[in-house]
Deep mutational scan, measured.
Amino acid sequence: NQESVVAAQLIPINTALTLVMMTTRVVSPTGIPAEDIPRLISMQVNQVVPMGTTLMPDMVKGYA
């Protein structure tokens, strides 16, 4: 089963992602794949992401 990127903390809107903000977990439905974490660093979220929420492609500016 593929791991997806999950918020390790509350991420406010327009925050640039850092490694410490993200963790990985096997979730359903699947979100952004864990191997894309290096690509996500410094990208901004376009909404508030509560802790434990799976990051979906449409939540990250410039990802999709």
Results as ranks from 00 to 15, higher is better:
residue 1 N to F: 15
residue 1 N to K: 03
residue 1 N to Q: 12
residue 1 N to P: 15
residue 1 N to T: 15
residue 1 N to D: 15
residue 2 Q to S: 10
residue 2 Q to D: 15
residue 2 Q to C: 12
residue 2 Q to K: 04
residue 3 E to Q: 04
residue 3 E to T: 05
residue 3 E to D: 12
residue 3 E to R: 03
residue 4 S to W: 03
residue 4 S to P: 01
residue 4 S to G: 04
residue 4 S to Q: 03
residue 5 V to G: 01
residue 5 V to Q: 00
residue 5 V to M: 02
residue 5 V to N: 01
residue 5 V to S: 02
residue 6 V to I: 07
residue 6 V to R: 02
residue 6 V to A: 07
residue 6 V to H: 04
residue 7 A to S: 11
residue 7 A to D: 01
residue 7 A to R: 02
residue 8 A to T: 07
residue 8 A to I: 10
residue 8 A to F: 05
residue 8 A to N: 11
residue 8 A to V: 06
residue 8 A to S: 12
residue 8 A to M: 14
residue 9 Q to D: 10
residue 9 Q to M: 08
residue 10 L to V: 10
residue 10 L to Y: 09
residue 11 I to G: 00
residue 12 P to S: 12
residue 12 P to L: 07
residue 12 P to K: 04
residue 13 I to F: 10
residue 13 I to L: 10
residue 14 N to V: 02
residue 14 N to E: 09
residue 14 N to P: 01
residue 14 N to Q: 04
residue 14 N to Y: 06
residue 14 N to G: 07
residue 14 N to C: 08
residue 15 T to H: 05
residue 15 T to W: 03
residue 15 T to K: 04
residue 15 T to Q: 07
residue 16 A to F: 07
residue 16 A to P: 13
residue 17 L to V: 03
residue 17 L to D: 00
residue 17 L to Y: 00
residue 17 L to N: 00
residue 18 T to L: 04
residue 18 T to N: 07
residue 18 T to V: 05
residue 18 T to A: 07
residue 19 L to D: 08
residue 19 L to H: 12
residue 19 L to I: 07
residue 19 L to N: 12
residue 19 L to P: 13
residue 19 L to V: 08
residue 20 V to N: 09
residue 20 V to H: 09
residue 20 V to C: 08
residue 21 M to F: 15
residue 21 M to P: 00
residue 21 M to K: 03
residue 21 M to R: 04
residue 21 M to G: 02
residue 21 M to E: 02
residue 22 M to K: 00
residue 23 T to N: 11
residue 23 T to E: 14
residue 23 T to L: 09
residue 24 T to F: 12
residue 24 T to C: 05
residue 24 T to Q: 12
residue 25 R to F: 15
residue 25 R to K: 15
residue 26 V to C: 15
residue 26 V to P: 12
residue 26 V to H: 05
residue 26 V to Y: 07
residue 26 V to Q: 15
residue 26 V to R: 02
residue 26 V to W: 06
residue 26 V to L: 12
residue 27 V to R: 06
residue 27 V to H: 03
residue 27 V to Y: 03
residue 28 S to V: 09
residue 28 S to L: 04
residue 28 S to E: 15
residue 29 P to N: 10
residue 29 P to V: 13
residue 30 T to H: 11
residue 30 T to K: 04
residue 30 T to C: 15
residue 30 T to I: 11
residue 30 T to L: 10
residue 30 T to A: 11
residue 31 G to A: 09
residue 31 G to D: 01
residue 32 I to R: 01
residue 32 I to A: 02
residue 32 I to Y: 02
residue 32 I to T: 02
residue 33 P to V: 11
residue 33 P to G: 13
residue 33 P to S: 13
residue 33 P to L: 07
residue 33 P to A: 11
residue 33 P to F: 13
residue 33 P to T: 14
residue 33 P to R: 08
residue 34 A to R: 08
residue 34 A to T: 08
residue 34 A to D: 07
residue 34 A to N: 07
residue 34 A to H: 11
residue 35 E to H: 12
residue 35 E to F: 08
residue 36 D to N: 11
residue 36 D to H: 13
residue 36 D to P: 00
residue 36 D to V: 13
residue 36 D to Y: 12
residue 37 I to V: 13
residue 37 I to G: 07
residue 38 P to C: 04
residue 38 P to R: 07
residue 39 R to P: 03
residue 39 R to A: 07
residue 39 R to M: 11
residue 39 R to H: 12
residue 40 L to T: 02
residue 40 L to C: 06
residue 40 L to S: 00
residue 40 L to V: 08
residue 41 I to D: 03
residue 41 I to Y: 05
residue 42 S to K: 08
residue 42 S to A: 14
residue 42 S to D: 06
residue 43 M to G: 14
residue 43 M to R: 11
residue 43 M to H: 10
residue 43 M to F: 12
residue 43 M to I: 14
residue 43 M to K: 10
residue 44 Q to W: 06
residue 44 Q to P: 09
residue 44 Q to N: 11
residue 44 Q to R: 09
residue 44 Q to E: 09
residue 45 V to N: 03
residue 45 V to A: 07
residue 45 V to D: 00
residue 45 V to Q: 00
residue 46 N to Y: 07
residue 46 N to I: 09
residue 46 N to Q: 15
residue 47 Q to L: 09
residue 47 Q to P: 02
residue 47 Q to Y: 07
residue 47 Q to D: 12
residue 48 V to M: 08
residue 48 V to E: 14
residue 48 V to H: 12
residue 48 V to P: 11
residue 49 V to K: 00
residue 49 V to Q: 01
residue 49 V to H: 00
residue 49 V to E: 00
residue 49 V to S: 01
residue 49 V to T: 04
residue 49 V to Y: 01
residue 50 P to A: 13
residue 50 P to N: 14
residue 50 P to E: 10
residue 50 P to M: 14
residue 51 M to Q: 13
residue 51 M to K: 12
residue 51 M to C: 07
residue 51 M to F: 08
residue 51 M to G: 04
residue 51 M to L: 10
residue 52 G to H: 13
residue 52 G to I: 02
residue 52 G to Q: 13
residue 52 G to K: 05
residue 53 T to E: 11
residue 53 T to A: 09
residue 53 T to M: 14
residue 53 T to H: 07
residue 53 T to I: 14
residue 54 T to C: 09
residue 54 T to A: 10
residue 54 T to G: 03
residue 55 L to D: 00
residue 55 L to T: 01
residue 56 M to L: 10
residue 57 P to Q: 10
residue 57 P to V: 13
residue 58 D to E: 14
residue 58 D to I: 10
residue 58 D to Q: 14
residue 58 D to L: 12
residue 58 D to R: 10
residue 58 D to A: 14
residue 59 M to S: 04
residue 59 M to C: 06
residue 59 M to A: 14
residue 60 V to H: 01
residue 60 V to C: 04
residue 61 K to I: 07
residue 62 G to H: 11
residue 62 G to K: 07
residue 62 G to Q: 06
residue 62 G to I: 07
residue 62 G to P: 04
residue 63 Y to N: 11
residue 63 Y to G: 04
residue 63 Y to W: 15
residue 63 Y to L: 10
residue 64 A to P: 11
residue 64 A to M: 13
residue 64 A to D: 08
residue 64 A to I: 15
